[in-house]
């Protein structure tokens, strides 16, 4: 059971990286929108796991994407930020009861799930585009990119989420 569980996460990691770099990095919807569906890994990752390991995994995921897209370590910086902030976001969305043993993501309401995912995406994209553009003079451009790409990411993540729903966890 335990090995099965790790196996699932490893497969998920590899598949999400490949899907991201081979499909979604080439999308260029409207010329600049490349949705970042790999955030789903951090969204799905089990809650009761060691936090340090989670941040480490987030870094690995980000750096893997960075290697493929020649973006230095921008993806890595964004993923570790949401990996670090995830408990705070979850506490905000689900209240204190997410710390209970019986808490399951699939037992929460649809609105809560979407809010949780949207918050992860917004934080991730804010860090990402701020670092990518690297000047606060272009703050409006950053906001525009965050909104446009964020919406696309959210929609695609929701679609993927309903395709591969996490029933067993």
């Amino acid at each position: 059971m335990v090995s099965n569980y790790y196996f699932l996460n490893v497969i998920r990691f590899i598949l999400l990286v490949l899907v991201q770099v081979l499909v979604f990095n080439k999308l260029n919807f409207f010329g600049f929108i490349n949705p970042m569906v790999y955030i789903l890994f951090l969204y799905w990752y089990p809650i009761k796991e060691n936090r340090a390991a989670f941040i480490g995994l987030g870094f690995l995921l980000g750096i893997a994407i960075d290697f493929f897209s020649d973006t230095m370590a921008i993806h890595a910086a964004s993923t570790i930020t949401i990996a670090y902030m995830r408990p705070a976001i979850m506490r905000f969305v689900f209240g204190v009861n997410f710390e209970f043993q019986s808490f399951k993501l699939s037992n929460t309401t649809r609105v809560q799930q979407i809010t949780y995912l949207a918050l992860l995406i917004i934080v991730h994209h804010l860090v990402f585009f701020t670092l990518e553009i690297f000047s606060l003079a272009n703050f409006l451009l950053i906001l525009k990119k965050v909104l446009a790409t964020g919406t696309a990411t959210l929609i695609l993540c929701l679609l993927f989420g309903s395709l591969f729903s996490v029933r067993k966890e």
């Binding site: 936090r51 941040i55 870094f59 230095m72 370590a73 890595a76 910086a77 570790i80 670090y84 670092l131």
Partner: peptide, 25 residues
């Protein structure tokens, strides 16, 4: 320890990123 790990990894990534802004990839 989590916060320190986060700060450490953030410094590493920012280091790579900023270095590339001023110089080659």
């Amino acid at each position: 320890k989590n916060f320190l790990l986060y700060v450490f990894l953030m410094i590493v990534s920012l280091g790579f990123t900023i270095q590339s802004h001023s110089y080659h990839q």
